[in-house]
Design a protein around this nucleic acid. Structure first.
Lengths: 165, 165
DNA sequence: CGGCATCCTTAGGGATACTG
DNA sequence: CAGTATCCCTAAGGATGCCG
């Protein structure tokens, strides 16, 4: 029965070689990302997650549970003064570290896939009010252009091959 | 027959309000991101895309076609001296602008979902060799922490709600 | 309000075999 | 090498209804 060994599973191969695949196994689904978008916008309650992410409640329930299991969200019971107890879902530190992914996605969507209606959201730096973008920066403080990357270890890629090389 | 009007479609609601959803409709699938990862690493040929992304050929063919249709990849015929003509897939400018998304995802995966085996890839700045990360930076040049964001227009969120507030 | 159970439909994806 | 065609299986997701 163990004939289906690890390497016969294409996914296993892929996972063993790149953490992008590993990340996608946790937050790779459209629904998961939409729920995390909502969490990053401040949504806390179950019904709001479902409605704002545009998901049916069974689906929202399933993915919220998975995200809690992955420790990207945490579920907590809270009570506002004079109110009854409610459940809330909050980003953990692990979940908050996905904000750059969401912001990078949103930037790209605004530029290339924006719908005609719908005002684009803008993220601002709280201290100065200026717009915030996801950028590539090296540890010496240089901002790196998309063509100024090389990878190591690996194929020794020097520049991203592209149409406009 | 038009009773299923636009707003009865949950996806339409979601798309009309956030470009993250729009972006996810183009590159939201696991397979699409894995193929784009390969493209960003320098993979050019069909069989290599399928093998390295860990996808069957029919699936790779389907998604490559969709990515070309979305103008994220471009397909081109080329011929190396003395060789027969081959097909290659290259990132377009639109596709290269997804690199921050891929890098942010990889960063997160390296930190939280890395597999034990498998050496993490490192992106370096070509000019100085220092490691490159995806960071949030405001237009005045400040690096913004994950808790220093606010969104506008919208709910007027001041800080990301989280466990460690 | 915050879900879960059920049922159903569709989309994604693998295996295999085949073509230019 | 670069796909396509066929078949089949599974995962994802919506609708409805029910429960603590």
């Amino acid at each position: 029965m163990a004939e289906r060994d690890l390497m016969s599973d294409r996914r296993a191969w892929s996972m063993a070689n790149c953490s992008i695949a590993a990340a996608l196994d946790v937050v790779g689904g459209r629904s998961a990302l939409l729920l995390l978008r909502e969490a990053s916008f401040g949504t806390r309650r179950f019904a709001d997650f479902a409605a704002r992410a545009g998901l049916s409640e069974p689906v929202a329930a399933k993915w919220l549970k998975l995200l809690v299991a992955s420790q990207v969200l945490a579920r907590r019971t809270y009570r506002e003064p004079g109110q009854r107890a409610r459940e809330e879902y909050l980003l953990t530190d692990k979940g908050r570290d996905l904000v750059p992914v969401l912001l990078a996605l949103r930037q790209w969507g605004d530029r290339y896939a924006a719908s005609a209606d719908g005002t684009p959201l803008i993220s601002r730096h709280r201290d100065c009010g200026a717009e915030v973008h996801a950028v590539l920066r090296c540890e010496r403080g240089h901002e790196a252009g998309l063509r100024e990357l090389e990878m190591t270890p690996g194929p020794g890629l020097i520049r991203l091959p592209s149409m406009t090389g």
